[in-house]
């Protein structure tokens, strides 16, 4: 117990606080980028334009089937040799956003496709224009079905941010390693870090459930 008191005081506590803050900062910004990417890609996937469908499909496939750490190296070290203009943290946020964006695109697409075709047909039959079909009939239903997967992706995104300690980001997992090294007690340090992650994940899950319940419609 002394050990935990030691971790939760003085410079070690500062490391944990900064680490948590950096992790959350990365998670939020990269998720915003991912959300924008996901929308653009999903729109391309459901568009009637084959070129855009193919391009979005290729993007999703590449980013989903390549390890995140390899992507980080490709952009940070590889790009670093070829004029990549961004710093560490910005690079981390961009790479994580591009990665999670591919997953968000898939969730959004399946959400849109899960709306029964009869809904859109009925909307067209009563004469709604394209924007009306999409904006008032399809999307409101699709959004409800994609809230849980989008929430899960927020959590996955938060957890994946740990990978970027490899390009020198001082996030939560790295803080744990530094504290463990300083105290020569990795076990206690990682237990504390794990508890912080669990709190973040659990808190997120509760929040997502709340949003889900708010948006629920009686069927």
């Amino acid at each position: 117990m002394d050990r935990f008191a030691e971790i939760l005081s003085g410079p070690h506590l500062d490391l944990l606080i900064v680490g948590t803050r950096v992790t959350l900062y990365m998670a939020v910004l990269s998720y915003l980028l991912a959300f924008v990417m996901g929308n653009v890609l999903a729109a391309a996937r459901v568009s009637p334009i084959p070129v855009l469908q193919r391009a979005a499909m290729a993007y999703v496939s590449v980013f989903r089937n390549t390890p995140l750490i390899v992507l980080a190296f490709l952009f940070w070290y590889g790009g670093g040799r070829a004029g990549w203009p961004f710093g560490r943290l910005t690079t981390a946020i961009i790479v994580l956003g591009l990665y999670t964006g591919a997953y968000i695109a898939e969730s959004l697409r399946s959400g849109i496709n899960a709306v029964p075709p009869g809904q859109a047909e009925a909307a067209r039959a009563i004469g709604l224009p394209f924007t009306g079909v999409v904006g008032t009939i399809v999307l409101p239903q699709a959004i409800r079905t994609v809230i849980p997967p989008l929430g899960n992706l927020w959590i996955a995104n938060l957890k994946n941010s740990s990978v970027f300690l490899v390009i020198g980001i001082d996030e939560l997992t790295r803080a744990g390693r530094r504290i463990g090294h300083a105290l020569a007690d990795y076990t206690s340090a990682f237990i504390v870090v794990a508890l912080i992650y669990l709190a973040l994940v659990y808190g997120s899950a509760q929040l997502i459930k709340l949003i889900e319940r708010r948006l629920e419609i009686a069927r």
Partner: peptide
């Protein structure tokens, strides 16, 4: 399952 898999590997 809660913490990142990287933390498990570090552990």
């Amino acid at each position: 399952r809660g913490p990142p898999v990287l933390l498990m590997i570090f552990f």
